[in-house]
Amino acid sequence: MQTVLYARVSTLDQTIEHQQTQAEAAGFKLDRVLADHGVSGVKTKLEERPEGRRLYDILRAGDILVVRWIDRLGRNYDDVKQAIEQFMRRGVIVRTIINNMTFDGSTKDPMQMAVRDALIGFMAAAAQSHAEVTKAAQIAGIAHAKSLVGEKRYKGRKPSFNAEQLTGVLNLLEQKAGVSAIAKATGLSRQTIYRIIDDPAAAQMSLVEWEVVRSKAA
């Protein structure tokens, strides 16, 4: 039996090392780490990514697949749901670092199966929903930032968080984590987290605006 961490990073603000450190800190003893760099979870299915495809080749019954959260497998409802179900049919156990969730296909109890399948569907839907909200905020933020640059009215400061930290906060909020736990996990102040909670769309837009303004000034 082997324990394999699968990590995916889609931006320069994310790192494979961070996801591996999180897994080890959560108590996982990793035998292998597979990672895809610069790959979108929205546009590219798990089986279409170089290292994601390898998972289907190396994982066998009894193996454990570890991911930081379900959105590392993908951000499309059908893709994520089908990937987890396929691994379970093979006898692979899927576990998450955040909240230590376990998806095991070995149970035959109909009630346990119903709860498990409903939870998989909910988490897959949450991954896609979060991606869609983030994309909408980015589009609005870019348009707003360009108008501010053109009129030379942008007075904002560099955000106190990066894209990975913002994603981490939003993911943990979805899991009902407390502010103190989120602060510890992301390295952000409680005040910053409260600002994100008050207006997550504005937090995303501030990151986009800063990048647009900075690129215009370069």
Rank of each mutant, 00 (worst) to 15 (best):
S10V: 07
T21D: 14
T21H: 12
A25K: 15
A26L: 06
G27A: 10
A35M: 07
H37S: 13
H37N: 11
S40P: 06
T44N: 04
T44Q: 10
T44E: 06
L46V: 02
E47W: 13
E48H: 12
R53M: 11
D57K: 15
I58Q: 12
L59G: 04
L59F: 10
G62H: 11
D71T: 07
N76T: 14
Y77C: 08
D78G: 10
D78S: 12
K81P: 00
I84P: 01
Q86C: 03
R90T: 08
R90P: 03
R90E: 09
I93C: 06
V94M: 04
R95H: 09
N100G: 07
M101V: 09
T102N: 10
S106P: 03
S106V: 08
D109W: 05
D109E: 13
A114P: 03
D117Y: 07
A131K: 09
E132I: 14
A136E: 13
A140Y: 10
H144Q: 13
H144V: 08
K146V: 12
K152C: 07
R153E: 11
R153V: 11
K155T: 12
K155G: 08
R157P: 00
S160D: 13
E164V: 05
T167P: 00
N171T: 04
N171D: 10
L172F: 01
E174P: 01
Q175L: 11
K176G: 01
A181P: 00
A183G: 06
K184W: 04
T186R: 05
L188K: 04
S189Y: 02
I196W: 00
D199L: 04
A202Q: 14
S206I: 03
E211T: 13
E211K: 15
S215C: 00
A218C: 11
